[in-house]
Amino acid sequence: MRDAVGGVQSLLVLGGTSEIGLATARNLTRGRTRRIVLAARDPSAAEGAADELRGLGTEVEVVPFDARDFSSHAPLVDRVFEGPGDIDCALVAFGVLGDQEHLARDGIAAVDAVETNYVGAVSVCIPLAERMREQGHGVIVVLSSVAGERARKSNFVYGSSKAGLDAFAQGLGDRLHGSGVHVMVVRPGFVRTKMTAGLDDVPLSTGPDAVAEAIADGLRRNAHTVWVPTPLRFVMSALRHLPRPLFRRLNV
């Protein structure tokens, strides 16, 4: 169960090798979390992280999860919820950035990325929301991105997939209002992870642990939107209102 100060006792991480996902798992283990399910495309790759979490006194299970194998999602969610006890919190942490130059020219590759980031998330969130609704409580944390706030020419495929995901998560949250299930949308800026390795650092960039801390704080406050770091909220609000010709010229 969730407690009065935002602690969750069990956590499902969809994207079980995601650095932000694992940083969040470690962070929540310092609080009330004692049971974690890591859902990863390559379960053997998640075993190392699972062992580390077990060392922190947590019961960890690793299950196979392929974001693009849509028909497997509902059975997987059912299986996870049939385990011992409730799932108090689910973190939707999977996603691919892709090589923008390649994605902008290769339709098949672009669709693959969008299927993972957006379609896959929609596909797994629907059964997840249903099971949590039956359970009568739960939090779904969706990792969106500031890139979804306004698509930039430098990563519009990724940005558009996150825009779709963000809109979906907000709508889902509103639909679930009053059901005991809460949806929290997290919009990090540039996060230094293996996904962004090789890219130039940008102002207000952050690390997985900072995102994890912001998520833990958002759970405590029962927030529906979390920006990481917080000032990005105002930066993006300004960028969103820039006239197109000006925005186009910005090297962002």
């Binding site: 169960m1 009065a4 009568g136 299930v181």
Partner: peptide, 16 residues
């Protein structure tokens, strides 16, 4: 009917 219930402290509501 389905209702959202919490205690007097109004924390951690759940549906029943």
């Amino acid at each position: 009917r389905d209702v959202l219930l919490s205690g007097w402290g109004r924390t951690a509501p759940s549906r029943a």
